[in-house]
């Protein structure tokens, strides 16, 4: 009974799937898939390398500080970084007084003690970095109904994130002549082939020389884009250096452990054919 039932069910399942496959083939012939413009013009992120790449890579704190400066002077006008507190900046090499000063210069939301009205006060180290907008509605209203996303986890929220951010920032270009009409950027949109649907609401945010670094580091578009991508890699994965160091210790320990257990196993099994 079991086998008869199974046979009938199997015949139905396999048979109907083959019929469906026939339908699929028929549809593929009659309505061949047309490559969409999004697919044709979209580009994968550029190849870019960072000091923190690879199993031995460590964050370059000077680069992270430059990246923070780019974020603070440019990105922060529209993008929040709501997983990061001022105190976290100590991890990228700012000392206690510098962190305090950075926090103090920022205005964070608070409540007026007398009236209960929303107010602001100078920040302290334990405050999170303030958002540029009070809420999503305000953010959309100020940006032509586009929402500037929070950047804390951006490099983990996209495939090949650091390279994606770098490519997006440096990827603004002229609209190609052969781009179909319906894919051309509309009002308030900008052509960028690294963006999923080719047209992004953010205007090119960075330009050569826009931010000046105290140590005189290069401030052309590519260098700044790279610095801010590195900074956003840190905001998304602040424990990376620690993680890799622990990983090496664990790996070396386990390789020795496995070697010893293998020798022990060989001793125990010596003389036993198996």
């Amino acid at each position: 009974m079991v086998r008869l039932g199974a046979f009938l069910i199997g015949l139905f399942m396999a048979g109907w799937l083959m019929v469906s496959a026939g339908v699929t083939v028929f549809e593929m012939i009659t309505e061949p898939a047309v490559e969409t413009a999004e697919h044709k013009f979209h580009k994968h992120p550029k190849a870019v390398s960072f000091k923190h790449d690879g199993p031995f890579g460590k964050y370059d704190t000077a680069q992270l500080q430059r990246g923070y400066k780019v974020y603070a002077e440019v990105c922060a006008a529209c993008h929040s970084l709501n997983q990061i507190a001022f105190r976290n900046l100590a991890e990228i090499g700012y000392n206690e007084d510098e962190v305090k000063a950075i926090a103090k210069a920022a205005q964070v939301p608070s409540i007026n003690a007398d009236t209960g009205e929303p107010a602001t006060r100078p920040g302290i180290a334990t405050d999170k970095l303030p958002s540029p907008y009070a809420n999503e509605t305000a953010a959309r209203a100020a940006n032509n109904n586009a929402l500037p996303p929070d950047l804390s986890l951006m490099t983990k929220a996209r495939h090949n994130g650091p390279a994606y951010v770098y490519s997006l920032l440096t990827g603004y270009q002229k609209v190609p002549a052969d781009l179909p009409k319906e894919n051309r950027p509309g009002q308030g949109l900008h052509y960028n082939p690294y963006f999923a649907n080719l047209n992004i609401a953010m205007a090119a945010p960075l330009a050569d020389g826009q931010v000046t670094f105290d140590d005189g580091s290069k401030n052309d578009l590519k260098s700044m884009a790279k610095d801010v991508s590195a900074f956003l890699t840190w905001t998304a994965e602040p424990k990376m250096t620690q993680r890799k160091a622990t990983g090496w210790a664990a790996l070396i320990f386990l390789i020795i452990f496995t070697g010893l257990t293998f020798l022990s196993y060989r001793q125990i099994w010596a003389g036993q054919k198996h």
């Binding site: 199974a6 046979f7 069910i9 199997g10 015949l11 399942m13 396999a14 048979g15 799937l17 083959m18 469906s20 496959a21 699929t24 083939v25 593929m28 898939a33």
Partner: peptide, 20 residues
């Protein structure tokens, strides 16, 4: 397209394998 077709053939085999 092709991914649906491939999964249809593979799934047909999967059921056929165990049941037939």
């Amino acid at each position: 397209g092709i991914y649906i077709l491939m999964s249809q053939i593979a799934a047909a085999y999967y059921f056929a394998h165990f049941l037939i």
